[in-house]
Structure formats: C-alpha cells, structure tokens
Simulated scan of single mutants.
Amino acid sequence: MTALAEELLAVRDTGRDFATQPALRLDRLVRAFYQGSRKIEVLNGASADIFPGQAVALVGPSGAGKSTLLHISGLLETPDGGRVIINGRDCTGMPDAERTRVRRVQMGFVYQFHQLLPEFSALENIMIPQLILGRTKKQARQRAAQLLGSLGLADRVDHRPAQLSGGEQQRTAIARALANDPRLILADEPTGNLDPHTAEHVFDALIHLIRTTGVAALICTHNLDLARRMDRVLRLENGMLVEVQPLALR
C-alpha cells in the first residue's frame, strides 16, 4: 500500500461528518429486460444514498446489473420504476435535454477505458467540457492545468493520449471528469484496464480528489482490495443494494 493510500485510510477512519443531503439518492429502482418471452429482473427495489465526500464502492458478480445501475444513476437509462434524485431534485421523468444538462453540469464520468480524444492534448481534453459549459479559454486552461498538476501530470499537459502511459491516460480522464466541478462522480471499473501497480496509483489519485473536493462518488469495481479502502461498500444482490462493511469485505 502506498503512503498516500495509508493517509487516505486514516482520514476515512476518523469519523468524518458527511453532508446531510445526499448528492445521489436511488429510491426503489426497478429494471427488467426481456429475452424472448423470458423476463430478467436486474433491479428489484434497489435503494441507496451517496453523500458528498464519500467514495462508495459498488460490487457484485458479473451480470448482476452494476453497469445498468450506473447508467440509471447517470441518467443515461430510465428505470422501469423508482426514482433517481440528484441534489434533492427528482430527475427520473425529465425530458432528454434537461437530463443532458444535469449530466453536463452536475456529473462526471470515468470509464474503464479513458475515452480521451486522440487528436487533442491532455490539457485540451480537459478544457473541452469546460468550453461546452461556457467557460472562457483562459478559465478552462487554468482549471485544466490545476487538475493535471494535482494528479502529478504538470509535465504532460501538451502530450496527446498516445504519448501517455496507461496510468497517465486514466489520471487525465479523472481530471476531465472533475473539470466542471461536478457534485457526483460515477466510475465504471476505472482501474480495470491497468496493471496492479498502476491501478494502485490511479485509485489513490481518484480517492485523493474525492477527499479534497468533497464530490460524491459511486465506483463500480471487481477489485475487493480497492473496495475495502473506500468509505462504504454496496453489494448488488438479487436486484437489491446491500450495505457491507468495507474492512469485512470478502
């Protein structure tokens, strides 16, 4: 375990108070799919609250519906029943344009593969979502440089994705997810494409930014060692979310 990881564990175990209003509330979500005449219930009343400053692991077996849950949480998919409440606002029945705005302003996404635009530099990749939101080039450039610097990439700002290592690419993707100061980060296997050593450092960087910015984060992972180091663990079982103590996770 790295020194930063030990520091983050110590911070987690001091009993920090989180904000009382959840950044994300999942309220009795229901989602089913059909294969021919067969109905497959993926979510069956899944509920959870994710608070600012919390890193929450989402675990469960393959095929349990973790990606579906993340897509619904990110307003990319609509549940068959239940509600998705973001910062106190019910977003479930919003029209597409408003859902897109909520995603753009209040959410950041980190994927297993970095999804960086190959023709742009690391700095430019982080500037783009800010420019779309309406920030000036100067503001976007300053914010992008600050984020890259906080992730140890100050000397890589002008490099394109192909010139970056796998860990550097993923740290750049994390910086992009935080570019617009979101209230909520949704991450789907953010270290799943990395070797163990690199995954450790990328995970530490992600958790460090969650701690320092106060953003809420729901992080889907198969890596139980990483899940144990988060504030909370939610296991998806039989369509329901069950709270598991991180250090007791097996």
Rank of each mutant, 00 (worst) to 15 (best):
His222Glu: 09
Lys39Gln: 11
Thr172Glu: 01
Met107Val: 09
Leu29Gln: 04
Val157Trp: 00
Gly192Gln: 03
Pro118Met: 05
Leu69Ile: 00
Leu131Ser: 00
Ala199Thr: 03
Ala3Lys: 12
Gly108Asp: 04
Gly214Asn: 05
Leu153Ser: 02
Tyr111Val: 04
Asn193Cys: 09
Leu224Val: 04
Ala32Val: 08
Arg99Trp: 08
Thr100Asp: 12
Gln142Leu: 12
Ala19Val: 06
Gln115Met: 15
Ile50Gly: 02
Gln21Thr: 14
Leu249Lys: 05
Pro190Met: 00
Ser67Arg: 07
Pro79Tyr: 03
Ile86Lys: 12
Arg229Trp: 07
Asn125Ser: 06
Arg16Ile: 13
Pro129Gly: 06
Ser47Cys: 06
Pro190Asn: 08
Leu186Gly: 08
Gln245Met: 11
Gln142Asp: 15
Thr198Phe: 05
Asp204His: 08
Ile132Leu: 07
Gly15Glu: 11
Asp90Met: 04
Tyr111Leu: 11
Leu75Thr: 10
Arg143Asn: 13
Leu184Tyr: 09
Asp231His: 14
Gly108Cys: 07
Val30Thr: 11
Ser165Phe: 11
Phe33Tyr: 15
Ile207Ser: 10
Pro118Tyr: 03
Ala154Leu: 10
Asp80Leu: 09
Asn44Ala: 13
Thr136Lys: 08
Ala179Ile: 07
Val105Thr: 14
Arg104His: 12
Ala57Gln: 00
Ile86Cys: 05
Arg228Ser: 14
Leu69Arg: 06
Val30Ala: 14
Leu69Asn: 02
Ser150His: 05
